[in-house]
Design a protein around this nucleic acid. Structure first.
Lengths: 160, 160
DNA sequence: GTTGAAACCGTACGGGC
DNA sequence: GCCCGTACGGTTTCAAC
């Protein structure tokens, strides 16, 4: 944890929900019985809470973590993009949505407009993707290749 | 999909495994019966394949997607870091591991050494985190604030 | 890969606090 | 409102084929 600063405005009131979230986040395939043991509530109570967390959107969904190399995409990169013509309406995220090599798209502060995170098979594929992005969204790009990933997708809630 | 380039060197030979992976990635809480229907194999065969994918590390794990705002971390940022003294042994990823605001840490090509992705509660917390990173790893930083996230964590495998 | 049987789990419902 | 216990149907598991 970082140094202390005024309390964070979390939207989950309950300490039990926090523990539930941690448990579910780390093992979404675990049984309700597992969660029940983790938080000290009955299976029914746990089920009701999980459903509420899903309904409120606190739990937005579930995903399996797939190894990029195993599916033929060992090369990752950040691509910052900037519209060539600032006067034009800027719809880059929509224009790029169909490119499934793009894993993430954020609007950012700073010189560029957007930051993309992409995964491809080879440098050759990266070249092609960058060209496709430039053409599809009428933008200039600045690509930063990832050499090694130490960790990513760490859970949002730290455990005590 | 991007334009065509020589075939990607995927490590999953089987077309059935590819479909399984897609199905599991999108709905890791679905039942084996669901997967069975999706790939046209018996429940037991599906179970065996999923277990193999897990054992081979193709499926590296499972996560619940937690809404950052709901847990009090609405502010995201990219932080590029560069060692102050290039002669010193560079162990930044380890030195920063304890900071749980850091969601990802990549080594990168370019001017900076690493790219971090972080989530915090407020600008004030970001300031504190940046200071902590500088002190912990003896690095200079360049922070890019995320204004809006259009999408992230999109599945690695595209549809058929 | 498939089938089948036993153990386990998710779910709904009734009741209590 | 939130929680607990129970009973039923679906699911996971594993052995035998």
């Amino acid at each position: 944890m970082s140094s202390d600063v005024p309390p964070a405005p979390a939207r989950i009131d309950d300490e039990t929900d926090a523990r539930l979230l941690r448990a579910v986040a780390l093992d979404p395939r675990g049984t309700l019985a597992d969660l029940s043991a983790a938080v000290g509530l009955s299976v029914s109570a746990v089920q009701a809470r999980v459903r509420k967390l899903e309904a409120r959107g606190v739990i937005a969904g579930y995903r399996a973590i797939v190894d990029p190399e195993s599916v033929g995409k060992p090369l990752a990169a950040f691509i910052e993009i900037t519209p060539l013509d600032p006067a034009q309406p800027d719809t880059a995220p929509e224009l790029l949505q169909h490119l499934d090599e793009i894993e993430a798209c954020h609007s950012i502060a700073g010189a560029a407009s957007y930051m993309l995170f992409v995964r491809v098979a080879t440098p050759r594929h990266l070249e092609t993707l960058v060209r496709d992005i430039r053409l599809a969204a009428s933008v200039s790009t600045r690509t930063t290749v990832v050499l090694q990933t130490f960790y990513e997708g760490r859970p949002l809630l730290a455990g005590p």
